[in-house]
Nucleic acid binder design. Sequence first.
DNA 1: TCAGGTCTCAAACGTATGTTTCAAACAGAT
DNA 2: ATCTGTTTGAAACATACGTTTGAGACCTGA
Lengths: 223, 223
Amino acid sequence: MAQSDTVDRILDAAEELFADRGFSETSLRMITSKAKVNLAAVNYHFGSKNALIQSVFARFLTPFSQTLESAFDDLEARCGDTPPTLEQTLWALTESAVRMPQRNEKGISIFMRLLGLAYTQSQGHLRKFLEAEYSQPFGRFMTLLKNATPQLTAVERYWRIQFMLGATAFTMSSSDALRDILQNKLGVETTVQEIAGHLVPFLAAGMQAGGSTPSAITKPSVA
Amino acid sequence: MAQSDTVDRILDAAEELFADRGFSETSLRMITSKAKVNLAAVNYHFGSKNALIQSVFARFLTPFSQTLESAFDDLEARCGDTPPTLEQTLWALTESAVRMPQRNEKGISIFMRLLGLAYTQSQGHLRKFLEAEYSQPFGRFMTLLKNATPQLTAVERYWRIQFMLGATAFTMSSSDALRDILQNKLGVETTVQEIAGHLVPFLAAGMQAGGSTPSAITKPSVA
DNA sequence: TCAGGTCTCAAACGTATGTTTCAAACAGAT
DNA sequence: ATCTGTTTGAAACATACGTTTGAGACCTGA
């Protein structure tokens, strides 16, 4: 073999196992046996398990962030002086995710699930790595959101962005299971694209919700 | 001591460590040393680590589900024949969570974080346990949601409920960190109650969002 | 052909985990 | 006070983990 494909085999196996089971619950031995590769190859090629985790993210996040940047470029060019709307911004993000070239039919699900895991299982090292490598498109997305919702106070916008991230990360991270449930309960087949089609209007409506707290919440009674 | 408090000490320590670090990342030795209890006590009192995890959930979920049931009873009594509105239903849930008697000032955060972990880290055994033990209040909540949003199709409602769960679980599971960030960035102090005050209108608006997909999403170009 | 670097392999290392063991300490009832 | 079942204690168990080792295979360029 001209150049070893061991690296890619390890990345493929790790990506799928991580997405299925999480990071701590996936051992190097599971990965190497699925990849049909020697155990030592991981530490030889990547140095450590943590570095492997970061490499798995880098492999799809780097092209994705480039796709995203150019989608934002297009959007801003199309809008001229007026800032893009909230829906436009959300759709730019969504389409960038969906359009990513996939290695296989499960690609987009794995992609989403890994993103969700990155948020919820963040191992410290992963969070630092992602912040260091991909803070720019993230910050740009935040700026677009800010300009698309000038009516919100900073505090309100902050929380609503967290809610959006939560709804997205959570749903996508278990999109496979949720799709199966829907298939069994209502007999409906669903694509990731269709999930996004439901999600974006939900997020946009929540983000632009009117006046807050219709009934003031009562303080908890101190026992 | 009349009856050993070892069990409670273990539960307290486990609850806090699980909330901080997740399940797989928390060892029995961490728990027993934090609880100042012998290692073997866990297996003696609970049988296994998995059973301990379930006990941690049972300790706060059982009283919570009772509180929730009576909150739903009150709500339905107050509404008479007309079904409760979406906001009313969401507030009933939120207030039940906030009103739960807390063991300490971090109680509500830990409560929320554990719920989030239950969803994202679900170990199989935990999911089965929760479904077996607490399906009734959950199903009742779903019915209330259904009656409060008759305009939605079943599929649309299904996805929007997932989005609500995601936004809630995710936000609450990292509410401590998010509150710290807000404190540092904007100098704003926040209580969990206030987070709920932001969250409920967001959820209600998203749930009742109007017509879907303002711009049809394009199919991914097959490379 | 051969030397040198790249890569693979089986095996072992040290550490950490969940669990078990069994003797000692304890409690409450007789 | 003594017995009995319950709870604790220190230690060990078996297993799994991430990582390291050193010898061998392989390819490449001279």
